[in-house]
């Protein structure tokens, strides 16, 4: 395993499968009456959130606590770009406090990479979402969810997603989830198609390992999983699309469209959903929609990542003592 988790693109197929398999083990812990492992006892993890995200922060915190780590939550309010709120200063403070790992969420693309490579701090860095760049644990939990649903919980162990057809729909341009998923799903052998209005696809996308379509209906029938991305209403003020109504008519997922998907196909969403925009309530609440599972799987995946990044480095003797 690598030292940091910055980008889904850094993971090899074997790394990724190992994380997914480890997450299955971690998921079993959640089924026990006492949902705790002693693996990271005595280790301190800081959740460094420069950008609000209660969902992601809680997910990491749950994962850390189930591994018995000591948790420090650091929320830096306001704009990350404002002077005085220096990433470097914060990093050096954490270093001085002897933090063993940093989970960072930042509004600026590349901030976790800077943190990991600038010599400001020695601890492993886990990217919990940076700007419009990457969100690797989201991609991992999505892949985990797909493997469970499309391959099987036990049958999936050791397996990747070879041949699975995944359609990602929505604001690709501003989405770190889309970038991470394209990278990871490609590594795992899936075939990815991005669907969006041309305004919401980045210039340069032709170099990504995926297909791009502007027509949702033409790809739905060939999809094993359809992942809907959140589309912020403000985008229409910047002329990315004319109206909310037109967007949902062309790119939203409603009951009619869902009915045209193959029977086994699932609907995914990284949350939070904008109901009525990219997804109708009927779809969001259907049992083909995996949103709630994705949340639960997020904790298992984050446990697996922390375990492999931190626990794996523990000396053998500590491990034996635990057993």
């Amino acid at each position: 395993m690598m030292r940091h988790l910055i980008s889904a693109a850094d993971l090899t197929r074997d790394d990724a499968v190992q994380i997914l398999d480890t997450a299955e083990e971690m998921a079993r812990v959640a089924d026990r009456p006492i949902k705790k492992l002693p693996t990271l006892r005595g280790r301190t993890i800081c959740n460094l959130f420069f950008e609000d995200s209660t969902r992601t922060r809680i997910s990491f915190e749950a994962a850390e606590k189930r591994l018995s780590a000591d948790v420090i939550n650091f929320a830096a309010k306001g704009s990350s770009v404002s002077k005085g709120e220096s990433l470097k200063d914060t990093a050096q403070t954490l270093e001085a406090m002897g933090v063993d790992a940093v989970v960072i969420r930042h509004g600026a693309s590349g901030a976790p990479y800077r943190l990991a490579t600038s010599g400001w701090i020695d601890a492993p860095v886990i990217n919990a979402g940076d700007g419009t760049h990457q969100h690797p644990t989201q991609a991992l939990l999505d892949a985990f969810t797909m493997r469970r649903r499309l391959v099987g919980r036990d049958a999936g162990l050791g397996q990747d997603l070879a041949g699975k057809r995944v359609t990602i729909v929505g604001d690709v341009l501003h989405s770190r989830v889309a970038r991470s998923n394209v990278d990871l799903l490609h590594t795992l052998g899936a075939e990815v198609t991005l669907v969006a209005p041309p305004t919401l696809v980045p210039v340069g996308v032709e170099h990504w390992p995926c297909e791009v379509s502007y027509d949702l209906d033409s790809v739905l029938t060939k999809s094993d999983a359809v992942m809907m991305l959140r589309v912020q209403r403000e985008r229409m003020n910047a002329a990315f699309f004319p109206t909310e109504r037109e967007y949902s008519r062309r790119y939203g997922l409603d009951g009619d469209r869902m009915a045209r998907m193959p029977e086994h196909a699932i609907v995914m969403h990284p949350g939070p959903m904008v109901r009525g925009m990219e997804i109708t309530a009927e779809v969001a609440d259907s049992d083909r929609c995996t949103v709630v599972e994705q949340v639960a799987n997020g904790v298992s995946i984050r446990m697996a990542v922390l375990y492999l990044l931190l626990g794996g480095n523990e000396s053998q003797s500590t491990r034996t003592e635990e057993k």
């Binding site: 693309s109 590349g110 940076d130 970038r179 210039v203 340069g204 990504w208």
Partner: peptide, 18 residues
């Protein structure tokens, strides 16, 4: 805008300067 708009900006998620 944060960098040249193209292949690299698409990957890095930095605002493009076309």
């Amino acid at each position: 805008a944060q960098m040249n708009e193209g292949v690299v900006s698409a990957e890095l998620g930095l605002g493009g300067w076309p």
